[in-house]
Amino acid sequence: MPGLDDAFWNHLDARIAATLVRAPRRRRSPHASPSLVPTSRPPLADETLSDRHEVADWTGLVETISAAGAAAQVQDERLRERNAAYDTLASDLSRALADVERYKALVARAEAQVEAKSREIQALAEARIKSIQARADARVQRAEERAQAADRRVIVVEEWLSSIEEASRHLLPTPRQPIAKAS
């Protein structure tokens, strides 16, 4: 597959040329093998300069690739850290939401208990008020009955006193004439 290898290298050269200012294109023969082993023939003067330039281009490419690889690793590490942070935040958020739901349930239960206790206290208070009112009404009733009885006794006593007074008037002797003094 020499054609595929040449296409790959030509594409790579084009990318390097796009990134480097005036980077020369590699000159490869269409039948050249992609081996890294140098040929046994000594290079000509023009080829040596061109090869040095190509070696310098490859060095720059290797540095570019190494820098890109390092940058990719750093970015990958940052992404992993962010993912870990997001995962931590997501689990914290899940726990917080679960806590909120649990607290809502506790609040609802407490509100229900407060409402029930409030109704119970209100019912007890109303029963106590009715009981106190009933006792007060009974006392008022007894007091009114006593007052009526006292009024009746007063009437009876007044009648007795009237009759005693009248009877005592009849019992008194008629008025006597003063006796004249003997002189």
Results as ranks from 00 to 15, higher is better:
E144Q: 09
H170F: 14
R152Y: 04
E144R: 06
A23W: 00
A116P: 00
I179Y: 02
P175L: 05
P24T: 00
L12R: 10
L93H: 12
I164G: 00
D151S: 11
V100N: 12
E77C: 04
D76S: 15
P30R: 13
D151C: 08
Q141S: 12
I179K: 07
A110D: 12
A96S: 14
S91Q: 15
L97Y: 13
E111L: 02
A72S: 11
P173H: 02
R78Q: 08
V100E: 09
A17T: 01
D57Y: 06
W9N: 00
E145C: 03
A136S: 05
S168L: 03
R109Q: 06
A147N: 09
A136W: 07
G3Y: 07
L161M: 07
W9D: 00
V37T: 12
Y86V: 08
R41L: 01
A116E: 09
W9T: 01
E126M: 03
A56Y: 04
A14R: 11
D151N: 13
Q177W: 12
D76R: 07
E111G: 01
D51I: 02
R135M: 08
V21W: 05
A18M: 05
A90K: 12
S35D: 11
R128D: 06
R41Q: 05
L89D: 07
F8T: 09
D92M: 04
A108R: 15
R78A: 05
A96P: 03
R41N: 03
D57I: 08
E81Q: 14
S183C: 09
A45T: 09
I179L: 06
D6L: 11
L97W: 13
D87M: 06
K130W: 08
A23L: 01
V140G: 02
L36R: 04
R22N: 13
I129R: 13
R142W: 07
A90T: 10
W160P: 00
D57R: 12
P38W: 01
V21I: 04
P24V: 00
A127Q: 10
R135A: 10
R25W: 01
S91N: 14
R153I: 05
A68C: 11
I179P: 01
P24S: 00
L93A: 12
N83K: 15
H31T: 14
A90F: 13
V37P: 00
S29T: 03
T88D: 15
F8P: 03
D99S: 05
P42S: 02
G3W: 11
E126F: 02
R28I: 06
E159F: 04
R102A: 11
Q133I: 03
A45K: 08
N10W: 05
Q133D: 14
D13N: 06
K130I: 02
L12W: 09
S162D: 11
S94L: 11
A68S: 13
L172Q: 13
K117T: 10
W160S: 07
E115T: 06
R26L: 03
W9C: 00
H53T: 07
A45Q: 14
S131L: 08
I65F: 06
W9S: 00
